[in-house]
Design a protein around this nucleic acid. Structure first.
Lengths: 196, 196
DNA sequence: TCTGGAAGTTACAGACCGGTAACACCCTAG
DNA sequence: CTAGGGTGTTACCGGTCTGTAACTTCCAGA
């Protein structure tokens, strides 16, 4: 009933995919390894043959999420080759779509909220992956010819991040409905400013 | 060592205060009722004489947090009586200060990330309290003479919310450093626009 | 066909969880 | 002094958690 990844793929892949889905939906501490392996159509021993611990599995899930998010950027480039400004608009559009289709926030942000131990292995990879994402957005803004690229990128990412948690707390009818208008207005405003 | 609320106050107050602090620091599922009562200098039975369940305690903690946040607004009015624009700037300043002094995000947002059950009692009070906070900020913007008060209030709250999760994921040196600049720029921009 | 490794099964350890029962205590109001 | 309510103490329940041990089954490749 709950399981959906019982296709015949390698157990490790099924576990990773199932864990990603369940962590996303129910939170990390809200899902036990037994539940993951059962939903993945396998068993606990197999999980512990492929992952050192639950923490290790968490880290791998976060990396897999980042990889999937990274693939999204390639579609922007593929759909608007060379047109960095169009890719930036595509980012806004994609972000807005995520707000409406997914009531849960960013997996990394949610994980950071749950895993409070300062030296938890997930914390350093969260920071690493978030910084990489920021670099990417800054680069896109810069290549789109925007002067204060860092400031725009940071503003956009803060808005998006805030919108995701807003969806999680008050739902899709809250402040997040204004996200596109805010983001597009900012881009216009930054493009209007001195581009050097 | 960890406990700090062993002053002689009523056990219920000590439990509530301690739980607020521990939930904030370690997350909700990261803290057990035993740990709370021990840190509060009391015991589990006393907790369950004052609170129906852990979920009930969570709800009361969230309400207490909101009450404390509400008190903050009164200081704005007290320090800038009648000057709504100054109060808005005070809000920005206070928000920025929170970003630097508290590495954890908003308790309600964190709780929403952890408590994923759609009908969890905490979810409805989170929504209720967040909506009340939004109303308050919208009202302040409107009273400050800003035309698109809702849009500014939503933008500011999304920025702040995003900044808090950013601090939680990448630390205080990330995009959140730009929060004040972004917020003040927005206020200027909105004041420049038609105020009707 | 044989073999070796991957995967499945069962059972368990040890800890922690939320929540309750039964009882002893203490302190204040009458 | 006494009665009673709030509090503290201890022990316990049933469940869940991560992680492991020992063993069996299965299947692909030589």
């Amino acid at each position: 009933m709950t399981d959906g990844v019982v296709e015949r793929s390698r157990p490790r892949d099924r576990i990773l995919e199932t864990a990603r889905d369940m962590f996303h939906k129910h939170g990390i501490k809200g899902v036990g390894v037994d539940a993951i392996t059962e939903a993945a159509g396998t068993n606990k021993m197999t999980l512990y043959r492929h992952f050192e611990s639950k923490d290790d599995l968490i880290v791998e899930c976060l990396r897999a999420n980042a990889a999937k998010a990274g693939a999204m950027w390639e579609t922007f480039e593929a759909e608007h080759p060379g047109d960095k400004l169009a890719q930036l608009h595509a980012w806004v559009s994609k972000a807005a779509a995520m707000l409406n289709t997914d009531g849960r926030g960013c997996d990394m942000a949610n994980a950071a909220a749950e895993l409070t131990e300062p030296d938890h292995p997930a914390r350093r990879v969260i920071k690493e992956l978030k910084e990489a994402q920021r670099e990417r957005l800054v680069g896109l803004c810069r290549d789109a010819g925007i002067g204060q690229a860092e400031l725009l990128a940071d503003t956009l990412s803060l808005l998006f991040e805030g919108a995701r948690v807003s969806v999680q707390t008050v739902g899709t009818e809250g402040p997040s409905t204004q996200f596109v208008r805010m983001a597009e207005g900012l881009i216009v405003s930054f493009r209007g400013a001195a581009a050097g």
